[in-house]
Design a binder for these strands. Structure first.
Ligand SMILES: [Zn+2]
Ligand SMILES: [Zn+2]
Ligand SMILES: [Zn+2]
Ligand SMILES: [Zn+2]
Lengths: 130, 130
DNA sequence: ATTTTATCGCAACATTGTTGCAAATGATAA
DNA sequence: TTATCATTTGCAACAATGTTGCGATAAAAT
């Protein structure tokens, strides 16, 4: 069985996540890492973190992909059914841990994962009345 | 004011949408068009169609972007609040026009658009018990 | 038919993500 | 501590996707 190692690069990436209130793209992580490691390594670390349920991947309407730390890694069944908010002004993406959509599916579909992203203006940008 | 023109390329793209039951990526459209026009032109046509509320853009968890015809262009207020299903086996993306999520948002957010994509197995792939 | 301007083709570029392979390094046990 | 070995890394090269500038083309209106 494949074990996951704690490398300096991985630790650095996790620290970046720890410091961030919002979800981060590969590029944003790379900028904050200041050449701690190669671009490719970041991709591979992110893959592993997603695989190990430490981070979850968020895909935005505009095609950008971001990542955020999971704060429920302790749960037995690990699913990300919370919503995300994408601000059209500041482009920040945040987890809305308490927003979970309810819906009724037609028969004959097997749903395994959901991706619910809302976009518009975040509280910050709404207050600066843009 | 900018007016939109009906060009042969645009007509060809619309015909491709008309023939398709599922959402299409830029690459899929290009393949079906058989060099009717340049790759860049397809991008520009898609942009215009989205802008004119004739087509809507769907962004998938795996990072792929697809487009589907809107079948409610007549509505006064044009919003895409229906869900989409993305099959992890055949990779087809279909509009679930009747599935609309209900949810409760925290205050101070202004929601303008939602993107609700479910993934798993579509009826076709579920029946071929994979 | 003429005019206007939206659209197109092309080339060049930017960004994002992937792969193969030799070298480096973390974890484990001797 | 040292030896071992599978995991991880860096590098280089590649692939896919999307963007921009600009001169040429063509749709639509007069
Ligand atoms: Zn904002
Ligand atoms: Zn989240
Ligand atoms: Zn399927
Ligand atoms: Zn749809």
């Amino acid at each position: 069985m494949k074990t996951t190692r704690n490398t300096t690069a991985k630790t650095a990436v996790l620290e970046v996540f720890e410091k961030s209130r919002t979800a981060l793209s590969h590029t944003e992580i790379q900028k904050q890492l200041n050449d701690v490691c190669d671009r490719v390594t970041i991709y591979r670390i992110l893959d592993r973190l997603v695989n190990d349920d430490i981070v979850h991947k968020i895909s935005n309407l505009d095609g950008t992909v971001k990542y955020a730390k999971c704060n429920h890694s302790n749960q037995r069944v690990h699913i990300h059914n919370h919503a995300h908010f994408s601000c059209e002004n500041c482009h920040e993406i945040t987890c809305l841990e308490n927003v979970k959509p309810s819906y009724i599916m037609p028969h004959n579909y097997k749903v395994k994962e959901i991706n619910f992203t809302l976009s518009g203006l975040c509280p910050n940008c709404l207050n600066s009345n843009i």
